[in-house]
Amino acid sequence: MSASPASIPAPFADPTIAIEMSEMNKWYGAFHVLRDIDLTVRRGERLVICGPSGSGKSTMIRCINRLEEHQRGRIVVDGVELTNDLKRIEEIRRDVGMVFQHFNLFPHLTILENLTLAPIWVRRMPRREAEENAMFYLERVRIPDQAGKYPGQLSGGQQQRVAIARSLCMNPKIMLFDEPTSALDPEMVKEVLETMVSLAEEGMTMLCVTHEMGFARQVADRVVFMDHGQIIEEAHPDEFFKNPRHDRTRLFLNQILN
């Protein structure tokens, strides 16, 4: 309670661990959304989280940056435990980027302003530097020519790539993806996935909630399967797709692969 967040030595501080959830539980009123979640993510690891809708996968990753509050158990992000402390929440949010299903770009700002907003206001970066930084990431997602436009003038795939660039501008240590391709037209899925693959290849710690099993096969270090608020199974993608251990996993894979 009293110590400042930076000086908190997490009890099991291990510099190679990015996120640690232990016995994490969450309720919406009487509804038990997340049950005893235990999950450890190492730095540089790429996780794909899948499961039927309503299984709690989105809720789980939204707990990591406190868009949702958990009621029991611990979440330690980058050595800092999530509590009610505003300073810790803001510190974790600075270091954890998130990409949403519906992009959630700020429609009243240009693309460039979308990208420079947080670096200027949260990281206190000088405007010029923030703009150079933004242009660098816009080039990375291959749309530098759209910098002066407004989000409404871009296609869905372009918007989602801008959203990824917006998160990257904060130089995050961890990236969360909450069904980033579910709201896209099929022909735009590929360009977003390509961006995500290249990000993965650079060693970014990533947690992706997605139904794109091709992406999971290609880049995931581990696939986590959730159902009814529980982690049912986690395994390397080769193992996960070839030999699912659990019936429910098999059923789910059958449904989405056929």
């Binding site: 940056n65 505003l86 949403f100 700020f106 949260v122 959203a163």
Partner: peptide, 17 residues
């Protein structure tokens, strides 16, 4: 929409900004 609040929060913007 709620998404605007969430996107701003996820970027680490405090309440007033």
């Amino acid at each position: 929409s709620k998404g605007q609040y969430e996107a701003a929060a996820a970027l680490g913007l405090p309440f007033w900004p």
